[in-house]
Amino acid sequence: MSARNLSLQPPLLEVRAVGKRYATRAVLENITFGIARGEIVSLVGPSGCGKSTLLRVLAGLDRGFDGEVRLDGLAQRGPSARLGVIFQEPRLLPWLSVADNVAFSAGPRQGGDPRVARLLDEVGLASTGATLPKQLSGGMAQRVALARGLFPQPDLLLLDEPFSAVDAMTRMRLQDLLLSLTRAHGTAALIVTHDLDEALYLSDRVLLLNTAGPHGAGRLVRETAVTARHPRDRRDTALAELRNTLLDGISATPPAYA
């Protein structure tokens, strides 16, 4: 779907002036943006600027914040089955089979659900349903985590550094898998990543979070649209130019765009 068509849709997710404090320290300040249905957005920025904190707020795992988070116009007040969360580590339960891990949100030992077999086939693990997590490689375990995140049929996936724990070649394969899965399921995605090349390869837009303003809290300081069509060439010079723009924004603290 083109960036133009995405911009014409009402937002699926609306983040309105979100702020977060720990005691007297401001961590996030005036975070405002939206995500359309089917859109992939990456959130980048230096360590300590509040990216993972913001993701926890959006996932409903942290309710102590200012502002508002809306999904399809409804205020979110906790975790929702319409939001799938995928962490840096797969976090599979070691005593459950792969199939039971995928279906965990439906209750214990629900791996016989027909959707599980379909999802495992989609992530290239069709014959692993009865396998225990200890028998999987790191890349295989993260494929299971992707299947588990999609099992409740969410409208939006929230991914926190999902591929940072695997080697470079596996990472590229998982990036392509994520693109094919979101396209097949019509699922939007918000990806927290330190990897600018990953953000530009995957995303329709890249949001840059940096410490800005009088309190040194994390604020959105730049929004970069990525208009290159998929499938993208990782060696595209246009992506390299966007990467340089993002690097400039990370090394500086420009005024917030909103």
Rank of each mutant, 00 (worst) to 15 (best):
A147C: 07
A126N: 09
S180D: 14
L220F: 07
S137I: 11
Q88N: 07
V27H: 09
R63P: 11
R63Q: 15
A256S: 15
E122H: 11
R115C: 13
L246Y: 06
V192A: 08
G64K: 13
L55F: 00
D72M: 04
P94K: 11
H215C: 10
R25G: 09
F104R: 10
M1T: 12
P46S: 15
G186W: 06
L181M: 00
K51Q: 06
L28R: 02
L157E: 07
T245A: 12
E223A: 15
R229F: 12
G124S: 02
D248Y: 03
T170S: 10
P79T: 08
L179R: 07
R148I: 10
L156G: 09
D72F: 10
F104H: 06
P154N: 10
S97F: 08
G78Y: 09
V98D: 07
I35M: 01
D113S: 12
L55R: 02
A217Q: 02
V123D: 01
L120F: 01
R91A: 14
L43W: 03
P46H: 14
L209P: 06
G45P: 04
P10S: 10
L43E: 04
S137E: 12
L190N: 10
A165C: 05
G129T: 05
R234M: 02
L74R: 15
R25T: 15
G45A: 05
Q135N: 15
R56A: 00
V98A: 07
T128Y: 15
D113F: 09
D204I: 09
R243T: 14
L196N: 09
N101Y: 03
E39F: 01
